[in-house]
Amino acid sequence: MDIKVTINGVKKVFNADPGEKLLDLLRREGYKGAKRGCSTGDCGSCAVIINGKLVNSCLIFAGQADGHTITTIEAIGTVNEPHIIQRTFVEEGAVQCGFCTPGMILATKVLLDKEKDPTLTQIREALSGNLCRCTGYVKIENAVIRSAEKMRSE
């Protein structure tokens, strides 16, 4: 079946099996920033943004995404030109193994697009679907706060 989407600003048509999950389709098509952690909606490492909302691509059938707008981590920044959020995560030591990082960055992006100066409660709420096994979250929360400060002063 054909899946027509606008992905990272580009209109594309993908071919998917009727039972295929969006995560598998994305990874097959080269969007490898979305990771498979749990496949049960618990970890958020497969997170992508659909129509402005953060969702787990492991729990979404490819057919559900047909006609919608998807943003993956690939659209946020590159190795040579990282987004402020990505740079700040590195500077603040909020990245260790990096497996959770694409999901964390996307969750932060959705939050900061809406809230320029989020409270700690809002940050925790925005990251509530993303687990990190390495950092203990303090550095991630600091990175979100610092990213917000930098984005406000730009």
């Binding site: 909606g41 659909i50 787990n56 679907g129 993303n130």
Partner: peptide
């Protein structure tokens, strides 16, 4: 559920 679940 967490925000990623509530969104969908």
């Amino acid at each position: 559920g967490p925000i990623t679940i509530r969104n969908i």
